[in-house]
């Protein structure tokens, strides 16, 4: 009797495992919401207001995927993750996807066994110095004291850059961005280095931003994007093509303003029709409804709209499109065709 109960419990556990690995898409549909791993707080990318509503550039990707899969951009639960906990949260299945300004690197893709679904922001490491130092290039920083976050790729990039240019520096290790701001303003270091988007956010908070300059050198490639676990290619495709839909929508001129008009009846552009589901069966191939891309775009607008709303030139961050412009405008955004 006791033995059979024991084995019964075991069988139930084994079945639960079986269900859990059946496919992230089925799990998400069964749960009725998407569990999305995000940053605990990064200006412009992931912020929560006083009521706990999440918003931001990385959040918009989660909402678009939720809209594509479940038809409802609000059907997302956010799991805040730190730099240390983000990968285990994804690997253990605690979250369905991670949209947390994570750099796509070889070892994360291959060794940690994740699939990057694309790139939603091309970042790079830069330097900020007070204007009064009169420095105009990072190559003039010989002997400078530099505030740097420990345990990130930033640290390694910095060491590489100074070694290549054969100049020396003195690192001031710090833990968080807030601490770095305080140290930099207190002049504990001459230079602050982190991702260019982070520098812009930091500089915007200063009493007199014009007294500080961001040097022109970008010393690293930091392609940031959403990622999922290895081994569930259907789910990876869903996240990839949702992101691509946002990017392609900007290229094709689909906006949150005209999307209902474009999706109500076939237009003269067959690619728009295929995306909107009025022609072909792209949604069906993904295992989603025909209007998945329409829902994703309707959630927060196309890529350009999302960019302008959260990090663009009219926000406190004031980032220009730069590398994040469409390929037709000299940027790197290039969605494969919807065909």
């Amino acid at each position: 009797m006791k033995k059979s109960t024991f084995f019964g419990a075991f069988a139930a556990a084994a079945m639960a495992v079986g269900f859990a690995t059946a496919g992230t898409l089925d799990d998400v549909k069964a749960k009725g919401f998407l569990q999305c791993g995000v940053n605990t707080g990064l200006t412009g990318f992931a912020t929560a207001d006083a009521n706990g509503n999440w918003d931001g550039f990385d959040i918009a990707v989660c909402r678009a995927v939720a809209a594509a899969v479940l038809g409802d951009p609000k059907a997302v639960k956010f799991t805040p993750t730190t730099t240390k906990s983000r990968f285990t949260a994804l690997a253990s299945g605690e979250v369905d996807m991670l949209s947390r300004n994570t750099t796509w690197t070889f070892s994360r893709d291959v060794d940690l066994k994740f699939t990057f679904a694309g790139i939603n922001y091309y970042d790079g490491q830069g330097f900020m110095v007070p204007k009064e130092l009169g420095v105009s290039s990072a190559r003039q920083l010989d002997g400078a004291t530099i505030c740097i976050q420990t345990g990130t790729t930033t640290e390694l990039n910095l060491a590489d850059f100074f070694r290549v240019n054969n100049i020396s520096y003195e690192p001031v290790p710090i833990e968080t961005n807030a601490e770095a701001q305080a140290q930099y303003l207190a002049r504990s270091c001459d230079v602050y280095t982190t991702d260019a988007s982070g520098l812009a956010a930091t500089r915007a908070t200063f009493e007199d931003p014009s007294a500080h300059v961001v040097l022109p050198e970008i010393i690293s490639k930091e392609p940031l994007g959403p990622l999922v676990r290895h081994g569930d290619n259907q789910w990876g495709d869903i996240v990839r093509w949702t992101l691509n839909a946002l990017i392609a929508a900007e290229e094709l001129g689909i906006t949150s303003a005209n999307i209902s008009e474009m999706s109500s009846a076939p237009t003269s552009n067959p690619e728009i029709n295929r995306m909107m589901g009025t022609e072909g069966s792209l949604g069906e191939m993904l295992g989603l409804s025909a209007d998945f891309a329409k829902n994703a775009i309707a959630a927060g607008g196309n890529y350009g709209e999302i960019f302008e709303r959260y990090v663009g030139e009219n926000t406190p961050l004031g980032l220009s499109r730069g590398l994040n412009a469409q390929w037709t405008d000299g940027g790197l955004l290039y969605s494969p065709p919807f065909r």
């Binding site: 940053n39 605990t40 707080g41 990064l42 200006t43 412009g44 992931a46 912020t47 929560a48 207001d49 799991t79 805040p80 993750t81 730190t82 240390k84 906990s85 968080t176 807030a178 701001q181 956010a201 930091t202 915007a204 908070t205 200063f206 926000t315 406190p316 961050l317």
Partner: peptide, 22 residues
């Protein structure tokens, strides 16, 4: 450090708001 919302982590989150950054 394991992303539970204790007061310190909340202060990080509040700073991510562009109104209160810095």
């Amino acid at each position: 450090v394991i992303a539970l919302w204790d007061p310190i982590l909340l202060s990080t989150n509040i700073r991510a708001d562009t109104n209160w950054n810095g």
